[in-house]
Amino acid sequence: MSDIPWDDLWPQIVIAMSTLLAAFLGFLFAGVNDARRDRRLAGRERATRDEERRAAALRARHEFQLATLLELQDAIQLMARLTGRAMHFDHMQARKGQYTQLPGGHSEDMHANGVDVIRLRNRLLDADLRADIQRFESASVDATLSPQTFEGLEGDALESAALARINTFGDEVSRIMDRLGTSLRAELEWRPSEAD
């Protein structure tokens, strides 16, 4: 052992230790980099899942609104028909000088339809459309709960009052159906965007 000079051995020890230290540091930094890469990958995967859930929820919301609008359109059309039938009944009764209540089945149909319209209206996200539907409901109620507007009228005056009532309500029907059509088209044309 004493034959090996320290001067020759020392550089080999330094090289061996440097190699060992470099290997250890390389292993350590590789582990740190792997952990960082794994965290970044997990973060991207989490962000992708969150985005997919958000997009699915947005699509479901639009599908729900579209289904609600389609169902509401049918319910509003039925409300218009039932109101028109009630107005015609009142007009025919007024011609006879009678002011009676609607036949039982018709009142029940109107009530059930009114409940459906309220239920569907409450599902709408658009506050302005909800207010427009509510105004239409009020116009329908006004048109059917006031047969006494014909009281004391006869002949041409009665016919004019009935026609005015029909025209006023017809304008409300046209207005609300146009408004519903606009909302339906907007839902049908909807496409997810970056802003959504």
Rank of each mutant, 00 (worst) to 15 (best):
P11Y: 04
G31Q: 14
V32W: 10
A131T: 12
Q65L: 09
L129S: 04
A164V: 05
R37K: 12
V117N: 00
S183W: 02
L102S: 02
E137D: 09
P192C: 05
S140K: 00
Q148I: 11
D90Q: 15
G155H: 08
A131R: 15
A143C: 06
A139F: 01
L25D: 05
L153N: 03
Q93L: 01
S146L: 11
A42D: 15
I166K: 12
A56G: 06
W190G: 04
M177R: 11
N113L: 00
G152T: 10
S2Y: 06
D196W: 06
A127N: 10
E187W: 06
R53K: 09
T19S: 15
T144C: 03
E51P: 00
Y99M: 08
S140G: 15
Y99C: 01
W190I: 06
E52F: 06
W190P: 02
L125H: 13
E137F: 04
G170T: 10
G181S: 13
R37W: 03
S160H: 09
I4R: 15
D128W: 03
S146A: 15
L69A: 03
D38C: 03
A157S: 10
R95Y: 01
N122K: 14
H91W: 12
L125V: 08
V117A: 01
D34F: 12
N167Q: 15
R53F: 12
A23H: 08
V115K: 10
S160M: 13
R165T: 03
A143V: 02
F136P: 00
V141D: 00
R59G: 00
L9F: 15
I15P: 01
G26L: 12
D116P: 00
A112N: 11
E137Q: 14
G26K: 10
T182I: 12
D128G: 12
G97F: 05
V115A: 13
D109M: 10
D128R: 10
R49C: 02
L82K: 01
A139Q: 08
Q134H: 13
R175D: 12
R37H: 11
S146M: 12
M79S: 13
S160T: 14
G97L: 05
D132L: 11
L184M: 13
A143K: 00
E189F: 06
L25A: 14
E154R: 15
D128V: 09
A42I: 09
T149A: 07
I118T: 11
R191K: 14
Q12I: 12
H91E: 11
G181T: 09
Y99V: 02
D8N: 11
L158K: 05
E187Q: 14
R85P: 00
A35G: 07
Q98A: 10
T100R: 15
R54G: 04
Q65V: 03
D156W: 03
R49W: 07
D178N: 13
R36L: 14
F29D: 03
F64H: 13
R121E: 08
E108F: 04
G97W: 05
E189Q: 13
G105I: 07
G97N: 06
H106A: 04
F169V: 07
R39Q: 12
R191Q: 15
